[in-house]
Computed example of a mutant assay.
Amino acid sequence: MFLDHIVHFVNKKPTEVAEDWQQQGVHAVVGGQHLNWGTYNALLYTKNSYVEWLAMEEEQVARRVVHPLVELMLHDLKEGSGFGTICIRANDLEVLRKDLENKGIETTGVLYAERKTAAGSLRKWKMLFIKEEVSDSLPAPFFIEWEETDDERYELLQKEGTVNNSNLQLTIESCEFHVANPREVIEKWTSYLNVTYDHQTLFLPNTNLIFKQLKQGTKERLVSVQIKGLPNQEAIIYEQGVYRFD
């Protein structure tokens, strides 16, 4: 399994987000609209994963829809912008669903989703969530299966200008989470992801997930992302999320 993307909830419009990052010399773009969710996004692609800045476009739609990611967004945005969760790319969500449920882990079942891109095309994918209450505890990662292969998807992204050569020089090296009980979270996430780990890190093929202790009473969330490929770029604190570079 691979890190597919990081979800960063923001109150800014995608056009504003893309412009902010373009001013930093980073090629970020407006993604498009999730018409069924009432949300829209901006995107920063790397070689094999990306950052999604997700915002609410139509509040009435977002509050009406029953969807785990939208429900998490509405919960978190009450306190302001910040990192929400991460998404893991899998080859076959139906196989994964059966594997998780055989372990006694309840899921939403496979969900279908789509986004109308800024270029007007329709991108489709499948999603799978672990069933849990939305809270200040660390949300479980969710899973995605794209309609196209990775090569086909990146070819489309390059043709429409979402990805350029500078994006392909970048990788998300690590994601750092602050949680009340790192060991407990690592054991739980290992059962979801089937990856190797040590006392504070899960090792995915394309990134490391690092879990550190926080003070009790603080919300458990992703707090910083390390991006490799921009060695001269200083760290950026953006919409209550920390982006470090090397």
Rank of each mutant, 00 (worst) to 15 (best):
L204K: 12
I105L: 13
I237Q: 09
W125P: 04
Q24M: 10
V195D: 05
F2A: 09
E79F: 15
F245A: 10
G31F: 01
P182T: 10
E58D: 05
I227F: 02
I6W: 01
T117G: 01
L69S: 14
V66A: 12
D4V: 13
E79L: 14
Q233F: 00
P141Y: 07
T190C: 14
H27A: 14
L157K: 09
W146D: 04
K219T: 15
L35S: 09
H5N: 02
Q240A: 15
Q24T: 03
H8N: 07
Q240T: 14
L69I: 15
T190N: 13
H27W: 15
S191H: 13
N91D: 15
L170C: 10
I130S: 07
V185S: 06
A119G: 03
V110H: 08
C175T: 13
L214N: 05
R153G: 01
R64K: 15
H5F: 01
N164M: 14
L156Y: 10
G80E: 04
V163I: 15
S174A: 15
A28V: 08
P231D: 05
I236A: 02
L93Y: 03
E114I: 10
R115G: 04
F83Y: 13
W125Q: 07
Q33S: 12
K219D: 02
K212I: 04
F9C: 11
E187P: 05
E176C: 12
K219P: 01
H199D: 00
E234H: 08
E114Q: 15
Y40I: 01
A235S: 15
P14T: 03
A235C: 07
D198W: 07
E57I: 13
Y45V: 09
E148C: 06
V10H: 00
